[in-house]
Design a protein around this nucleic acid. Structure first.
Lengths: 204, 204
DNA sequence: CGCTGAATTGACGGACATCAAGATGTGTGG
DNA sequence: CCACACATCTTGATGTCCGTCAATTCAGCG
């Protein structure tokens, strides 16, 4: 697992600070409508016109592309607070699906961009968003959270497609981690960190 | 080589149409000064403040990051006409070096962004640039050119670090291609395509 | 319960890394 | 122009990680 993707790990960003109502802050605030998506429901599809920007309120979203050989490449996971859909030109080059039951704020792209032309600050926020998206895709990794126990929203298959490995290899790696005392698994999705330092040394 | 990076190939974009003076078109036109860089010279370094935007006039540039385990990850190659440096926030998260003797147009980022605030068209161009950069990084691949013979500016080591393989594997793959009649090598850097259709079928 | 999808585990083969030795190319100084 | 030094590239032998195929086990749910 590490010789192929030695700097990719399977961790989660800290939860986003939310405003009172539960709606997240940021460039899309007040500009869109919240929508619900069931597990595995499509948010948008490859080759569809890119008319909206999206922000995860609750749950998790994955973007992915199908490779020529039929494999699925998961490009990124988005967690509450994260904005996605910026990566698109006129049409989406990837598809987006809810990993688990999710709530997503949907804002018209044209409206956001139009307002950005009037408001310098919003324009700057969008640019920063783009930069961060680029860096996220480049690094292809998550940031570690502080808590000792996390619940993964994604399946082994999602993780495998994200790392470009098979579900079996991912599973075996988890097993190894358990055996070497680095983590323990309450359920297959619920991870307890036992030795954070050693895990980080396997380069995050 | 294909099971690890089945959709990455080592090809080159078509040369950019240039204006009379040899200076390239685009959002950076007339906004910067041309500079020369020797082979392997650093254009900018990781962690340096990102004060400039760059456009390749001649030669080739690579961006890369050093991984925690000491390996080098080549993020992208840039050829004449390509603009790079947009991927940066306040500081560069990657380094850039000339692959071969290169001429690069260097423009102050602040000046470009300031002008973009006044000129809607330029702003739009920069946004598109960002989108394309994102998609390029995501796909991590080159576009095939039409000519039957090309000169690679980058070494086997560069290619290996781009694909995440070793120099030996890259070399062996070239050898296999030659033996199966897909290409022939005048020199190690000069490639002749013999069977374009078959090469494309190995999914580009 | 039993059904179904998800996850784990095992056996095996193949692709790629590592280590090592040569071959080829390229630049530099005599 | 040649000779030497050094970098780049190629080739071989061997081990290991990961993918494939297959069989169980586990977890959630009607």
């Amino acid at each position: 697992m590490f010789s192929v993707a030695p700097n990719a790990s399977m961790f989660v960003r800290p939860p986003m600070p939310t405003r009172s109502a539960g709606l997240p802050d940021g460039p899309l605030a007040f500009m869109g409508a919240p929508m619900r998506f069931a597990r595995n429901a499509e948010v948008y599809g490859e080759d569809e016109p890119a008319e909206y920007l999206y922000q995860v309120i609750s749950g998790a979203v994955r973007t992915y592309r199908m490779l020529d050989d039929g494999r699925r490449q998961v490009v990124a996971f988005y967690l509450p607070g994260d904005i996605f859909g910026v990566e698109a030109g006129d049409v989406h080059l990837s598809s987006a699906e809810a990993v688990s039951e999710s709530q997503v704020l949907v804002a018209k792209r044209s409206a956001v961009l139009a307002r950005a032309e009037r408001e310098k600050q919003l324009s700057r926020q969008l640019w920063d968003l783009m930069v961060r998206e680029l860096q996220r895709v480049q690094q292809h990794s998550f940031v570690l959270i502080k808590s000792a126990s996390i619940e993964l929203p994604m399946s082994r298959q999602d993780i495998a497609d994200y790392l470009g490995l098979t579900i079996e290899t991912v599973s075996r790696t988890f097993t190894q981690f358990v055996q070497s005392g680095l983590i323990s698994l309450e359920t297959s999705r619920r991870i307890q960190f036992r030795n954070r330092a050693a895990l980080n040394r396997l380069n995050a």
